Amino acid sequence: MLDDRARMEAAKKEKVEQILAEFQLQEEDLKKVMRRMQKEMDRGLRLETHEEASVKMLPTYVRSTPEGSEVGDFLSLDLGGTNFRVMLVKVGEGEEGQWSVKTKHQMYSIPEDAMTGTAEMLFDYISECISDFLDKHQMKHKKLPLGFTFSFPVRHEDIDKGILLNWTKGFKASGAEGNNVVGLLRDAIKRRGDFEMDVVAMVNDTVATMISCYYEDHQCEVGMIVGTGCNACYMEEMQNVELVEGDEGRMCVNTEWGAFGDSGELDEFLLEYDRLVDESSANPGQQLYEKLIGGKYMGELVRLVLLRLVDENLLFHGEASEQLRTRGAFETRFVSQVESDTGDRKQIYNILSTLGLRPSTTDCDIVRRACESVSTRAAHMCSAGLAGVINRMRESRSEDVMRITVGVDGSVYKLHPSFKERFHASVRRLTPSCEITFIESEEGSGRGAALVSAVACKKACMLGQ
């Protein structure tokens, strides 16, 4: 009897593995994704193909990295998701002549009506938060230079001027797309009239992360975010950046690689679950690469896999709870928690219980395998993109072996128990001629924006502006 049951459990697990095998990517698959990513990057950089390229390769006008001589107080704003952060950054000489960066910050959550109302409502709310922060720190009387981390696709015309191309991540505030974001912020500050600010720089969160990590390690020339969304930036040779005049030196390019796949480059790798996630998203047909990796989508992918296993009578005796059938019910943090389970399955059992399920031991094991399959594919897909960037940098610099540091931020990278190990191992397999160091950014977005502002202020002083 026991043997029969054991055989049935083994057969069930084997069927589960057959279904989950769809998520496995072979090294040849990853090399294919990497080569296609490089081709799209090239198209994004070139003037004649930029418009139709899915990977936009947006110039950021960040050319210099901090040298350690900029000092002063800077205000930093960070808008990239449902939370908005205001930070005071003091850049100065530390002990023994070292450079020191001290920060104080406060988080504000953005109400739904500000995210989806008008641009005026959104930026009025942001300036209200700045006003509140300055009151708390008794700094209303000071006109501070301000660095703005704005983590949406922007076409820069200068370091302090950028046109919002399109909202992502659930934002829909009308009247912002096609307009200068810094102008919208300046107008809102003017409307309030109770404080003055000098907006000197606007950067993407990947750029802010790279600059913040450069402060720790001067070989950091790539910034990457794996959180709600997924994106990367890197220092490109100016001669390859056709959208900006000049051939000397390097400029940081914001790849906006989340949109890779929007022209069909990933079609052969998309599964039924991916198509369902895409169809029910706020932007169907867009940001397809990001939807395979980002935390906004990972939990939902797992939920759809679990429903398939229920329908195949391989999980929960073929019956799903009402909660499990509800879109968004299986949160991405559950994926991390399930994979963090120590082996007694308590954590998995508790999560499934909150979803109205009474799982068996085998159910718990199957749910864990589903989570591992989805998150491992995410790590491997992400590795193909980064390997594409790094191999490109090595080739354009004609280096036999390139040493490089990548600064990384984002909740999936930082909080998932195995993502970074799987990701690092896969990147290294795909970049055999590179020695890569990964560092995690601390308060990256805010500190990085302030350091970019410090560079901009120093330049302005040198130019006598």
Rank of each mutant, 00 (worst) to 15 (best):
I163R: 01
E93D: 11
L47Q: 09
R63K: 14
V182P: 06
R345I: 06
V200P: 05
D363T: 08
R358S: 09
E248T: 14
S373A: 13
K12L: 12
V389D: 04
L324A: 11
C382V: 13
V455I: 12
K190Q: 05
S336K: 04
Q38I: 08
N204M: 00
D194E: 11
E319S: 11
T255F: 02
M381D: 01
I159P: 02
W257K: 06
S263G: 13
K56Q: 14
D135I: 03
R358Q: 02
V374D: 01
E48A: 11
S280L: 11
D363M: 11
S453H: 02
E52P: 11
E128Q: 02
E9F: 14
T168Q: 03
E40R: 04
H317G: 12
F150S: 04
E196S: 10
R447E: 05
V181D: 06
F74Q: 06
H416G: 01
I19Q: 07
F148S: 03
E128L: 08
H218F: 11
I436K: 04
D205W: 05
F330M: 13
L184I: 12
E279L: 15
C230A: 13
V335C: 15
K414T: 15
L357Y: 08
L270C: 05
E331I: 15
M37A: 00
T118S: 10
K39Q: 10
F148H: 03
D160Q: 02
V91A: 10
S321E: 11
S321R: 13
T405K: 14
E196C: 14
N254P: 02
G258R: 00
H50Y: 05
G356P: 06
E128H: 10
A456R: 15
S398D: 05
V389A: 06
M298S: 11
E120V: 13
R46D: 13
S453A: 15
R327C: 10
I126M: 03
F195N: 04
F269E: 10
K56S: 08
G72P: 01
D113S: 10
E312V: 13
V335P: 06
T354W: 11
G285F: 12
V71Q: 15
G261H: 01
S411N: 01
Y349N: 07
G92W: 14
L463D: 15
P432I: 10
P145E: 11
A119G: 01
Q138W: 10
G44H: 06
S340V: 12
L292S: 08
L185M: 06
R403D: 14
I366W: 08
R192I: 03
P153K: 08
T206C: 08
D160V: 02
L164G: 03
G410R: 04
D4R: 11
F150R: 02
K13W: 11
C220T: 11
T362F: 14
R192Q: 00
T405W: 14
R369P: 03
S418H: 15
E440G: 07
T361K: 11
I211P: 07
G162F: 02
Q286H: 15
T103P: 10
M121L: 05
M37K: 04
A176P: 02
I211A: 15
L25Q: 14
T209D: 03
T342H: 06
K458V: 13
E442V: 14
M121S: 07
D135L: 12
K190L: 06
R63V: 11
H156G: 01
D3I: 09
G94F: 07
S433P: 15
F438L: 07
N240K: 13
G229N: 02
K414C: 15
W167Y: 01
L314G: 09
G229R: 02
M34H: 03
K104T: 12
A379S: 06
K31I: 09
R308M: 11
I225L: 02
L301C: 05
D187L: 07
K13R: 09
T228E: 00
R327K: 14
Q347L: 12
F269L: 10
M139T: 13
S263F: 09
D29E: 12
K136H: 12
T361G: 07
G193R: 03
F260N: 02
R447K: 10
L184S: 02
E312N: 13
T326V: 14
E440F: 11
F334D: 07
S433C: 15
F123S: 03
E51A: 12
S321P: 14
